[in-house]
Design a protein around this nucleic acid. Structure first.
Lengths: 219, 219
DNA sequence: TAGATTGTTAATCGATTAACAATC
DNA sequence: TAGATTGTTAATCGATTAACAATC
């Protein structure tokens, strides 16, 4: 069941990639405050992490710092963006224009980081033809065609559970290799295709577990 | 910076709790198919995991299976729900009624698992007074008061970055011990308060990294 | 009983942290 | 130069997997 990493991803743990993205955000904040240099210690403090981890994470990709000095904020951020391949516009489409899908199309956090939602898809004729924040809603029948035409690279799934696997198959057929899945079901994809799961129910339910203490005190 | 676990949470890894929630979902699906018994092997296959892990996860909390037989689906699910404290209605409120906040208030996945969104908060007078899927939108000034009145246990944050820490402080002051944070910033809370981060931008950005292979082939 | 599967201990694997020589 | 901080190797820690006696 293990999904072997794409050849290019090789031996780098997923957690490292996520932290890289986190570093990038912190560096952006520092840049806005006109901070030009930062040490791994300072960077790690902002994130509640270990300075060695910051250095080790970066070491996977090269040498970006200067011993005795630290890292140049703007430079390091540019390098990380390049590694993450977000030093350019990345084209995204959302499948499923329910509450969640609509919110994702309109989510400003994505555009702020250089992602561009170029379209959305739905089966509901009432929704087809709408424009959500610059993104036209196409009929799901046009999925393959539009993905190619619009140069979509990442697909966001926000549709009913029953449709998830069928749509995933079609999307993969169209050449998509990266899927952000908000549907609370496992989807099966060929190796080489990367799926990130965002499972809202599980996040919520696992929080409930930690209520224990608090609640018990009340009773 | 480490947030020490609440005493009751003790030594159980967060990953175990999340998997428990996953098991619960699979068991629900099995129950709907009228399956009454399941082995750790079958359960693990549904999730692409190791059967030993399923047994070990459950062993943190007791003995739920019968050697030579497996687990009774309905019984195990009930037990897990009890452990997770979702064998009852859990009251939730959302702070921030933008696109994302609205979508979260309306998200059917939450109610399906027994979470009840009892209210929402916003600073925008245009939004105050609305009712989103049974949930009234209150003014943010009423936050403390309403949390107590409505018996809110979990707070979902979906507001602008600048307001996140201030609202988190107020929410904690009101006795909340569990926060689901969609705002892309770290928030600082006293130990004993649990925060789960759902960082959409990081999920998206880390996906972009894996485009490498796919894209490179095209060029 | 024989076969199957649990609960649990031991072995393995991987990720995080500490330590330090290299170097600005 | 002396002080600081990197990049990297070694040590530690924790989580996953394998193995197997206990038991239905």
């Amino acid at each position: 069941m293990e999904q072997p990493e794409a050849e290019s991803a090789k031996r780098i743990p997923k957690a490292v990639i996520k932290r890289l993205s986190l570093y990038s955000r912190v560096l952006q904040n520092l840049a806005m405050k006109n901070v030009t240099k930062v040490s791994s210690k300072e960077l790690s403090e902002q994130l509640g992490q270990n300075p060695a981890q910051v250095r080790k994470d970066l070491a996977y990709f090269g040498q970006f710092g200067i011993p005795g000095v630290g890292y140049y904020v703007a430079d390091l951020r540019a390098q990380i963006k390049k590694i993450l391949r977000t030093d350019r516009e990345v084209r995204v489409a959302v499948v499923g224009v329910g509450n969640l899908g609509q919110a994702l199309v309109s989510y400003t956090g994505f555009s702020r980081e250089g992602f561009r939602i170029v379209g959305a898809f739905d089966a509901d004729p009432e929704k087809v033809g709408l424009t959500l924040r610059d993104a036209p809603v196409y009929h799901i029948d046009e999925l393959e065609e539009r993905i190619r035409q619009l140069g979509v690279e990442i697909i966001v799934l926000a549709l009913p559970r029953e449709a998830a696997q069928i749509v995933a198959d079609r999307v993969v057929q169209s050449g998509i290799t990266a899927i952000l899945n908000f549907v609370p079901t496992r989807i099966v994809v060929p190796s080489g295709v990367k799926v990130h799961y965002v499972d809202l129910t599980i996040e919520m339910e696992s929080l409930a577990y930690y209520l224990k203490g608090g609640i018990r005190e009340k009773t």
